[in-house]
Structures are given as structure tokens and as C-alpha cells.
Amino acid sequence: MPKAICPECGVDVEIPEDALVGEIVSCPDCGLELEIVEIAGGSVKVRVAAVEGEDWGE
């Protein structure tokens, strides 16, 4: 299973095999919501997920 590093607490976050860019995962340690920004082979980059942008909506 690919892994990413939580930018807040530094622990490994397991990423499901079928995950896509833009998907939200939770850090198992600190609970922070993380957004997948890049998937390249087994390497996955995440950032703290935005909760609401100024122009977000329906």
C-alpha cells in the first residue's frame, strides 16, 4: 500500500490503492484531513485539505 507523510505530525499515512488525486484521507495519528495532490508510482504527496475556499460551492 502506498504511503504519504502527514505534513503536521510526520507519521506515515496509508493510501488506498484506488486513491485518486483530490481524494481526502485522514491522518491516523493527528486526525488531520489531507488532500492527495500527486500520485507517482508508490510515492504519494499530500497537503492539508482546504475546508472551504472563497469561491467554493454549488
Binding site: L20, V21, G22, E23, I24, E35, A49, A50
Partner: peptide, 10 residues
């Protein structure tokens, strides 16, 4: 096309 993959997109 999407930004975040929300429950709707899933």
C-alpha cells in the same frame, strides 16, 4: 473534471 473527490464524485 473535479477539484476534491467528494462523496458526490465517488
Amino acid at each position: 473534471v473535479y477539484d476534491q473527490l467528494r462523496p458526490e464524485e465517488r
